[in-house]
Simulated scan of single mutants.
Amino acid sequence: MPWLWYVGPLALLVVWYLTGLRGRHEARRDGELVRWRVLMTPQAASPLRGAQRDARKTVAEIDGPRPVRSSPSSLERMLEETGGGAVVARYELVPKLAYVVVAGPDAKNGSEYQVVLAKLAKAAPQLTVSPLPILDGHRAPNTGVQFKKDPDFMEQFLVEGPEAKGIGRWLSARVRDALRDFPDAWLFVRDRAMALAVYGPVDAERLQELVIAADTIFAEHGAGGAPSLLFEGDSEADDDEEADEDASDDEDASDDEEEEGEDAAGADRAVR
C-alpha cells in the first residue's frame, strides 16, 4: 500500500530522534555525576577552572565517592519508599552506612531522582517530610504533624506519620534547619534507615547540597558513630602537608635569623 512508503520512514525518524534525545540526556547526566564526584573531593575548594580540568578525568581517576554495585538490603528497601525506579548508579559515602543512589524512570516511576540512603543508630518513628504543595500559587493548608513553635518550617514542609510526639522529637531544630536549607528535599524514615531524596535531573551542585543536608541529619541520628558523609580524603596526607609547611616555615625563620645576624655584623663593622 502506498501509505506505507510514508509511515515507514516517519517511524524510523521518530525512533532516531528519541534515541538521540535519550543519548544526549544520558551523556549530560553522566557528565554531571563526574562533576559532582569532583566537587565532593578535598580539592573542591580549588578554583573552578581546576575543577573543570579534573572533570575531564576518567571515572577511575577521580578521587571522590566510589561507584559500587550494591548497598545493604535494609537501604535498598528504602528505594521503594522513595519511588523505586531503575537504578542508574550507586556511590559509597561511608562503607556499609551511607550511599548515594541515582534512579531513572521505569514502568512504575516516571521521574529521575537522586537519594542519600543511610542507616540510623536506633529505630525511629515512621515519618515522611515533603515540600508543602502549592495550589493556585498558594501553599496548601498544612494538615500534617504540627510544629507550632516553628511556623516557618510548617510553611515549607508537610510532615506525615502516625506518632506525632515521637516525630516531633526526632525532627530536632538541627534537622529542621537542614531541611530548610534544602527546601526541595523529601525525607523518608523507616525503622533504622533514612532516605533524603531530590526529584528531577541530576545537577552536580544540587546533588552536593543534598549530601550536605543528609550529613547534618546523619550527624544527629546516624549509625556507627555518625561519621561525616562528606568526602574528606586522606587525613594522613593532610597531616603530611601541614608538617611540610611547618618545616618550610622553620627553614624560613632560620634563614631570617641568619640574615639578621649578617646585618648586625655588618653594622658593627660600619661603626668601627
Rank of each mutant, 00 (worst) to 15 (best):
E155Q: 07
R174W: 00
M40Q: 13
P183D: 02
W5R: 13
D263N: 09
P141Y: 10
Q146D: 11
K165V: 03
R77N: 03
W36N: 07
K119E: 15
G225T: 12
L132P: 11
R24V: 13
E241A: 14
G104D: 10
F157H: 07
Q52D: 09
M78R: 05
D181L: 05
A219T: 09
S248D: 11
P65A: 14
Q52K: 04
M194G: 01
V116M: 07
G20R: 10
D246I: 08
G222Y: 15
A89D: 13
V34R: 15
G8C: 02
G200Y: 03
E112S: 14
S74I: 05
P125R: 05
K108C: 01
P95L: 01
A204G: 09
E259P: 00
W5S: 12
Q146K: 14
Q43K: 02
L210E: 09
T143A: 05
D177W: 12
A197Y: 07
R22C: 02
P201W: 12
P95C: 00
F157N: 04
V14R: 07
L13K: 03
D239S: 04
D256M: 06
F218K: 01
E232I: 00
Y17G: 15
Y6G: 05
R37Y: 12
S228K: 11
E259G: 00
A164C: 10
R35F: 14
M1N: 14
A214N: 12
V14S: 06
L120T: 13
D234S: 08
S111Y: 12
R180C: 02
V159D: 04
E257A: 08
K148A: 12
R90N: 11
E242K: 11
N142C: 10
G168A: 01
D54N: 04
L171Y: 03
L127I: 05
A265L: 06
A118M: 10
R192P: 06
D191F: 08
D240T: 06
P65G: 13
G261R: 06
F182R: 02
S130L: 08
D191P: 02
P95V: 01
G266S: 11
S172T: 10
V15S: 12
G23K: 09
E220V: 12
D54Y: 08
G64L: 07
A103P: 00
L39M: 09
V100K: 15
P151A: 08
L75D: 01
E220L: 04
L117M: 08
R176K: 15
G168Q: 11
S71G: 07
V198S: 13
Y113D: 05
A60I: 15
D234T: 00
R37C: 05
